[in-house]
């Protein structure tokens, strides 16, 4: 726009940075570094370092209790221990949809979630509803007394049954 030239005073020419520009940049940069660093330190502060959450393992009982077709829910540990045709396995009772606690419906031999209507069969496969994944299979082992120990913190491959 040529008509604007010179209207608001002489054009400022491009110049080499002055000492003032240099120190301004240093100052702004230092503030930015300090802001980012204090943000990171605050985030680190907010991350809990020790959690007093309940232990993940529990003793489910003797393997002899789990004949094929037996389903024993454990409300507190949020898991099912199920006697299958080939062996014993444990399922997480936490719905893969949004973390509600599923329930065993003995009359339909199915596992149902009360929150959004997901349903699972006894192997944890989704039979109905919004759950995106099957219920995870949990690690089952035996302790020194021969009792079954379920670790809800360890997820194992789907279909890997435990044979005592």
């Amino acid at each position: 726009m040529p008509e604007l030239e010179g209207m608001f005073g002489p054009e400022v020419e491009e110049e080499t940075p002055t000492r003032r520009d240099f120190f301004t940049q240093i100052g702004v940069g230092a503030c930015a570094v300090a802001a980012v660093a204090s943000g990171i330190v605050t985030l680190d502060y907010l991350e809990p370092k020790v959690l007093f959450e309940p232990p993940t393992t529990y003793v489910a009982g003797s393997p002899l209790d789990f004949a094929p077709g037996v389903v024993v829910p454990n409300q507190e540990k949020k898991a099912f221990v199920i006697g299958g045709a080939n062996g014993i396995y444990a399922l997480s009772a936490v719905c893969t949809h949004l973390g509600c606690i599923t329930r065993y419906k003995s009359d339909e031999s199915a596992i149902a979630c009360p929150c959004h209507g997901s349903r699972f069969d006894l192997e944890g496969n989704v039979t109905h509803g919004p759950a995106p994944r099957p219920l995870p299979w949990l690690d089952v082992s035996q302790d020194a007394n021969g009792n079954l120990v379920v670790d809800t913190g360890i997820v194992i491959a789907h279909g890997k049954v435990f044979r005592p």
Binding site: L43, L46, P48, L51, E53
Partner: peptide, 12 residues
């Protein structure tokens, strides 16, 4: 995790 201060809804 940050919002809850843990993995479950607890006192944190």
């Amino acid at each position: 995790f940050f919002l809850l201060g843990g993995n479950i809804v607890s006192e944190n």
